[in-house]
Design a protein around this nucleic acid. Structure first.
Lengths: 154, 154
DNA sequence: TTCTTGACTTGGATTCTGTCCATCGTAGGA
DNA sequence: TCCTACGATGGACAGAATCCAAGTCAAGAA
């Protein structure tokens, strides 16, 4: 089954909506399950997880030492395409992967130590952009990153 | 004169505040002017400019063929440190350099073609994060990127 | 259960972005 | 005009990510 097929199947999406775990949702959507993909998904499962691809690889390799970096990149790319994981770029360095994609949220980043917290602001952030400032764009998403100092670094 | 010296001189900052051009401000702040730095500043001057370092280098090289990439990176880094240019990361790829740093704004990015527009939303974006969602952080800045499709790609 | 096949994994090469460093050149003050 | 500290150079290097050809395997079919 191709990624394109997986992407556009609302019936599959809904059928498994009650499963809380990433792994179950993926299996339910027909994602071909391999030992490598399983450990990548397991490493990413949870709250406040913001790992780089290399960190995911390192943790996956603890359980499956022969897993390659290319496989981790492939799996992460597909999870992002499926909408199960969000890519976030908080510094200019490596992208981070956030499995909390089903709960819209924003990020609060410490400028000193790089710590990242999920935050949930009030109101619709899209509403901040009036129509006359949209220049004909169809605006569908907004990414917000707050920066400051965490309690430890302040 | 060192960067540290340049950074913290409000008198210099104000003395040249009426100059509209980047080049003039830099010279007024004592930035040592070389032919390489001049073309980098000239390439960046203007509105709605969001060039990558490589694009800056390519345009600078049209006027000064022997300019090196390291020099462009050095100059860009200093312009950012001086607060004259802002770094923006709209995709996971190369950083872009935005000379519009004196007019706070946000970015509207086309998910298809990557086009970038400066936008000016209403209200204070920092106000969107209530105190109970700040977890003890001292929040000082916020970056907002709206995503969607531009008129050409829609 | 075994077979089959297309999808997945591997690891090494490659690209892209950015930094570092020793050496050379020069802007701007004396 | 001369000095010299600061800036430029380009090649090496490093980190992040992608590409590719060859080998492997999950899952449906028989």
């Amino acid at each position: 089954m191709s990624l394109d097929t997986l992407r556009g199947t609302p019936s599959n999406l809904n059928r498994w909506a009650d499963m809380s775990d990433l792994l179950g949702r993926l299996r339910g959507r027909g994602w071909r399950m391999t030992s490598q993909r399983r450990v990548v998904a397991e490493v990413l499962d949870g709250d406040h997880v913001h790992l780089t691809a290399d960190e995911v690889h390192a943790r996956a390799a603890q359980r499956l030492p022969e897993i390659s970096r290319a496989t981790v990149y492939n799996a992460l790319g597909e999870l992002v395409a499926l909408g199960e994981v969000a890519e976030v770029t908080t510094d200019g360095r490596a992208k981070r992967y956030d499995p909390n994609a089903h709960h819209p949220h924003q990020h609060l980043v410490c400028s000193a130590c790089g710590a990242i917290r999920d935050v949930h602001p009030t109101g619709d952030p899209l509403a901040g952009l009036p129509a006359e400032e949209r220049f004909g764009f169809t605006v569908s998403a907004v990414e917000v990153t707050y920066r400051g100092l965490c309690p430890n670094c302040a």
